[in-house]
């Protein structure tokens, strides 16, 4: 049947596809958003700044970087990967205490200065040469409990003075904290650099240095070898074969105290393992964050718009009643385009 009114528009798929594209574009322009749950963390990073952390066992030869350099890199990486809304703080450990430098701050807002502060960490900040890891760890756990954060404790596990013969104290396990220990250092034994009063490198620590450092007072007269004494010489006579003056990552030891303290463990070089350990051993807070729906609407609008052009092109032969009779007569309808 022939009609005089404009035909085909209401049955024209291109028209309806265009209308659809318009609707989705308008929806996208409205800027609708849905609330999304984002899992954020509050971390407090404590970096061991004792002498053994200056041992260079990341990389080879002149390009070797110290454990501290590597720790700075990894801590910056961890901070970079935290989702917005997460907070991170910074502290240092030496002697037997963990000391805060920065309380947890919003990482997205403060990433550049935080990265600067991490890069400024330096062994010279250490106020004493001792490295009593277990005590430092429990001090760090107390600290993070007060700050309401989860602990990231970066250390190589090198005890200085060496662990007493009588055995070490157990790591405390307060039930309020969660976190991970990150073990710095390589598997190979490397020497520990020694510095003079003004910070110049003057060689490496030797076994007598370590033994002397462990003694509280001078050895009793006549005992040149330094016999065991529970208070004055807790490490006893360090054997000539002892490797206490060399350092490597004490992974089994760190895993042991991590288990005692209820923390996780990951090696420093392995960012994926660190992330997995953080995932398992640190708590998350759920933060409601708006997530824009516009991209979905925009994608839909794009699909409809392209379909409109495609439909017009592909189904043009369907249009027009004038064509329909010809179509009936014509066997090759697809080729008949008007």
């Amino acid at each position: 049947m022939r009609t005089a009114k404009p035909i085909g528009r209401l049955v024209d798929p291109a028209f309806w596809l265009l209308i659809g594209a318009l609707c989705f574009a308008l929806l996208a322009a409205l800027g609708l958003a849905t609330m999304e749950e984002r899992r954020v963390r509050t971390l407090f990073v404590v970096v061991d700044l004792t002498r053994s952390m200056t041992a260079r066992d990341y990389g080879e030869g002149v390009k070797a970087r110290s454990r501290l350099d590597e720790a700075e890199r990894v801590v910056t990486e961890i901070a970079r990967k935290l989702p917005c809304g997460s907070r991170i703080g910074l502290g240092l450990f030496t002697e037997r205490r963990s000391f805060p430098l920065i309380e947890p701050v919003d990482i997205c807002e403060n990433f550049p200065p935080f990265a600067d502060a991490v890069a400024a960490l330096n062994w010279r900040m250490a106020w004493e040469g001792d490295s009593r890891v277990v005590r430092g760890l429990s001090s760090a756990q107390e600290l993070v409990a007060r700050l309401g954060a989860d602990l990231v404790f970066v250390t190589d596990g090198q005890e200085a003075p060496p662990l007493p013969v009588a055995g070490r104290r157990r790591a405390e396990n307060p039930d309020t904290t969660a976190g991970v220990i990150i073990g710095a250092g390589g598997a190979k034994l490397v020497p520990i650099p020694k510095y003079d009063e003004s910070g110049r490198a003057i060689g490496f620590y030797s076994l007598p240095d370590i033994a002397a450092g462990a003694r509280v007072s001078i050895a009793t007269p006549g005992s040149t070898s330094g016999e065991y004494h529970p208070r004055n010489n807790p490490v006893g006579n360090l054997a000539a074969t002892s490797t206490e003056h060399l350092t490597q990552v004490r992974e089994t030891y760190l895993r042991e105290i991590a288990a005692e303290a209820g923390l996780g463990y990951a090696p420093l070089g392995d960012l994926a393992a660190i992330e997995a350990a953080l995932e398992r051993h640190t708590g998350t807070d759920i933060l409601e964050a708006p997530r824009s729906l516009s991209p979905i609407f925009a994608a839909a609008a794009l699909i409809f718009l392209i379909a409109a052009y495609g439909a017009n092109h592909l189904f043009a032969w369907r249009r027009g009643t004038a064509a329909s009779r010809a179509k009936r007569n014509h066997p090759r309808t697809g080729a008949f385009r008007r």
Partner: peptide
């Protein structure tokens, strides 16, 4: 020993977070 907590910055919150550690 001297410790540099926050190098010079325009970000106020991190400066205040460093000052806040005086509570410890």
């Amino acid at each position: 020993s001297p410790m540099l907590a926050v190098p010079l910055t325009d970000h106020r919150t991190i400066v205040k977070a460093a000052i806040a550690t005086m509570g410890e």
